[in-house]
Simulated scan of single mutants.
Amino acid sequence: MTITRFLTRALAAVPLIGGLLAAPQANALEIMASHYGALLNTAPIAVALERGDYKKNGVDVTDVMSSVGGGTGIRNMVGGGLGYGIVSTSTALAGIRQGMDIRIVHTAIRRVDDLLWVTRPDSGVSSVKDLVGRKVGITAPKSSSELMVVMAFEAAGFPGKADIVALGSVGSGLSALEQGGVDAALILEPLYSARKDRYNVAFSLENLPSMTPTVGVATGDFMRKSPDQLRGLLAAWRSAVNFIYENPEEAAKMVAKRYGDTLPVDVATTSMKRMAAIKYWSQGDFDMDGLNIWVKGMERMGEWSGPVDWSKVLDDSFLAADLRK
């Protein structure tokens, strides 16, 4: 299976990735992670598993349930009795607003630079300015991809000048681009690193501020009954992120091994080195500016209204002392 087919399937279904470690022991635990095995947002989990970071911190992670994100993923997590997962910030906030007994216990991603918009090599497009009044593909209305296009055009000084077209999956968008249906289409890592020779970058999101699109959440029950395991999970995440930043090539081999032969080592290496260079992953500490920027974006897309009472949403007590603010 090619990486393109793998990502297309991963973004359109909710697979269960099991049997990652040996038989369960006293502290055996299953966790949930958005897009694990497909995208790089949860790659530190693969690194932590391969390095034994979880066991070093007193947790035996035996399974990782992979979700395509959205409300279904977090409902599956809570309904399936899982105490911890990594989900989009939007999903976490929506779940808390709906009354789910969960809290955000750490941040996971601090940048959105894994998203790029690409164009055909013969298009003559190399910037936002070149796309003014032209068709720019997104996945769906009110999606994070629409928000990123809006923000990118604003940052470049051309607010409201994109002709935004909803195309469905990333694969559908790239097909539309190749057939001339749009002038720029969304692509994500690691697919970009696998296909970068086929496209030119129309624009990236490197000029946007740091923001927090992905977080770690825990259920109230898990927080009360298994506080040491939760601390271990967060410590392992931090250890894995630090290892990635210090050893991106070695980390890439670990991610490729855990993700399977659908993510070749050379692609993993290119994409992981790119993400490490921009400090894509968070150690877990709460960046309030980044969180508030994301919420403002949700408001713009009609997905949120009013201020967030962060005291009822965040719990930093399971983070290492030096990460608490």
Rank of each mutant, 00 (worst) to 15 (best):
R51T: 09
P121I: 08
W237T: 14
E246R: 11
S175H: 06
A46Q: 01
R120F: 07
I278W: 11
T89P: 04
A176W: 04
E154H: 00
V267C: 07
G297H: 08
I74D: 12
I86D: 06
S271F: 03
R198D: 10
V14L: 11
S226Y: 09
N292E: 15
A268V: 09
D261E: 14
G180Q: 03
R324W: 05
A276K: 05
I3V: 10
Y84R: 03
R258T: 11
L323C: 04
I102P: 11
A10Q: 08
L39F: 13
L131V: 01
V78K: 15
S67Y: 01
D322V: 12
A256T: 01
I164E: 13
A320H: 02
G73Q: 11
R110V: 13
I244L: 15
V61R: 01
R111G: 05
G85H: 02
A185L: 11
E246Q: 14
K279I: 05
S282I: 03
S210P: 14
G37N: 00
V241L: 13
V149S: 04
I293Y: 15
R9P: 10
A22P: 04
R51G: 03
G173T: 02
R224N: 10
S175K: 10
T2E: 08
I102C: 05
V308L: 10
G284N: 05
L116E: 02
A276L: 15
F318V: 08
R9K: 11
M298C: 07
M151W: 12
K296R: 11
